[in-house]
Amino acid sequence: MRRSGPRALFAAIALAITGAVQAGDSITLASTTSTEASGLFDHIVPKFREATGIHVRVVAVGTGQAFEIGRRGDADVLLVHDTAAEEAFVSDGYAAERRHVMSNDFVLVGPADDPADVAGADSALDAFRRIADGEHPFTSRGDDSGTHRAERNLWHDAGIQPRGRWYRELGSGMGGTLNTAAAMDAYTYADRATWTAFGNRQNLTLLFDGDDVMFNQYGSLLLDGDRHPHVKHDKARQWHEWLLSDQGQEAIASFRLRGQQLFFPNDATPPEP
């Protein structure tokens, strides 16, 4: 036992070295759980690698945490969904550039018997009011993610301050929130990609979608190389620009899950000023 000590240390050092080498021709992308859970990256990252030889290492977290990772310089590029916060991220000088990449929409899901009758609502705000008026259980992400921020905006626009026993802030990812909603027959606000990929629906069903205010825009943020000299700016830019190239947009559009297209390319949308 004692003699294996030094050998074990060398093995540890070797592991440390391989860890560092692996990072050489790769970039780190901080993105959201919705894109990871749906399997989008498994579809588009290999295509990018084929085109450029660059490996993209995806760290999937909530949008709030992705911004924090970007601010600290721990990723090279972000792909998130909170347009207002993305613009602030650029104006605060953390990102050199921001582009619209793709979009989809949010959906309101809930128990199939739909006690609040949100399926009969004529708008998203109306649906939210019906849930609040009847104090029907609603599970909120509560994790400062892009989806959580979008949900809070809807409550705000509906003139409702959600609180009380019916409103459950979970502090959980989208999947965890859907698991909880399924277990307690609650309503919840989800991004369509995670909802489509989700395998544990039980009694949950899609009840309301299609309102323009439920639009979900994803943006790519290229970190500022001056602020963070160590970021792999050139490689990150290749990814950032590839996403908007015909090839990248085609890769996004061709991703299907359960026969459904989940992300819609934004090539027609001009970059934000």
């Binding site: 592991l15 440390a16 990072a23 760290v59």
Partner: peptide, 17 residues
């Protein structure tokens, strides 16, 4: 983290970390 004292090593998000 890059903003932390050992950020130079670039070890975050590796097996070593």
């Amino acid at each position: 983290s890059r903003a932390g004292p050992l950020g130079e090593l670039g070890l975050l998000f590796t097996p070593t970390a």
